[in-house]
Amino acid sequence: MKQRSGWCFDCDSHVPVEDLRTEDLLQEIVSLHQQVPKDAGFFKSLSSSYKHDKKLLTDQLTRLEKRLDLIKTRQSPPKCLSCGGGHISLVEGAGPSCYYPGCKGTLQEQGDPLHLSLEFDHRIYDLEGLLIQVIEDW
């Protein structure tokens, strides 16, 4: 699944959350359908680059359609990818400032010369967003 920025009320923090929206996914599927070559002449259909390009587009289209099917069959709402909680709010907007849930303020991006590198655990979720396993030191 894709992820996006959100606010988790359980973590009380700005965190990555599952992105279960389908609008962009549907647009991408329509666009790929238009790019997949329909009919080619006999000699062009023998071309290895034609076959390769068509297979790449078809495989990508298949993956997107499977993701759309999974989202459509999903029963639970998006979850926090930090704690697995469902009490989240998607952060609207992007860039230097965005909406902050729970008040009328905004989050402001601020430059900082300090850079940190963090290691995150690898988390495996089922199709409903429930945590199955955590692999530490991924």
Results as ranks from 00 to 15, higher is better:
69 D>G: 12
70 L>W: 06
72 K>W: 03
73 T>F: 01
73 T>H: 06
74 R>H: 08
75 Q>C: 03
75 Q>L: 10
78 P>N: 06
78 P>T: 01
78 P>Q: 05
79 K>A: 08
79 K>R: 15
79 K>Y: 11
80 C>M: 10
80 C>D: 03
81 L>S: 07
81 L>F: 11
82 S>F: 08
84 G>R: 15
84 G>P: 07
84 G>I: 14
85 G>N: 08
86 G>A: 04
87 H>F: 12
87 H>A: 13
88 I>M: 03
88 I>G: 12
89 S>F: 13
89 S>W: 12
89 S>P: 04
90 L>A: 09
90 L>D: 04
90 L>Y: 12
91 V>K: 00
92 E>C: 02
92 E>G: 03
93 G>S: 02
94 A>E: 09
94 A>M: 12
96 P>D: 15
97 S>K: 15
97 S>L: 05
98 C>V: 15
98 C>H: 13
98 C>E: 14
100 Y>R: 10
100 Y>D: 09
100 Y>A: 14
101 P>A: 04
102 G>I: 02
102 G>W: 00
102 G>P: 06
102 G>L: 02
103 C>T: 15
103 C>A: 07
104 K>E: 08
105 G>F: 01
105 G>V: 07
105 G>K: 01
106 T>R: 10
106 T>A: 10
106 T>N: 13
106 T>D: 14
107 L>W: 15
107 L>P: 00
109 E>Q: 08
109 E>I: 00
111 G>M: 00
111 G>T: 11
112 D>A: 03
112 D>R: 05
112 D>H: 02
113 P>V: 14
113 P>S: 12
114 L>V: 12
114 L>W: 00
114 L>P: 03
114 L>S: 12
115 H>I: 13
116 L>E: 13
116 L>K: 13
117 S>T: 02
118 L>V: 09
119 E>A: 14
119 E>L: 10
119 E>I: 11
119 E>G: 13
119 E>C: 12
120 F>C: 11
120 F>E: 13
120 F>A: 13
122 H>D: 03
123 R>D: 10
123 R>G: 01
124 I>D: 07
125 Y>E: 03
125 Y>N: 02
125 Y>K: 02
127 L>G: 14
127 L>V: 14
127 L>A: 09
128 E>N: 10
128 E>L: 07
129 G>Y: 04
130 L>S: 03
130 L>I: 05
130 L>K: 10
131 L>M: 11
132 I>L: 15
132 I>N: 10
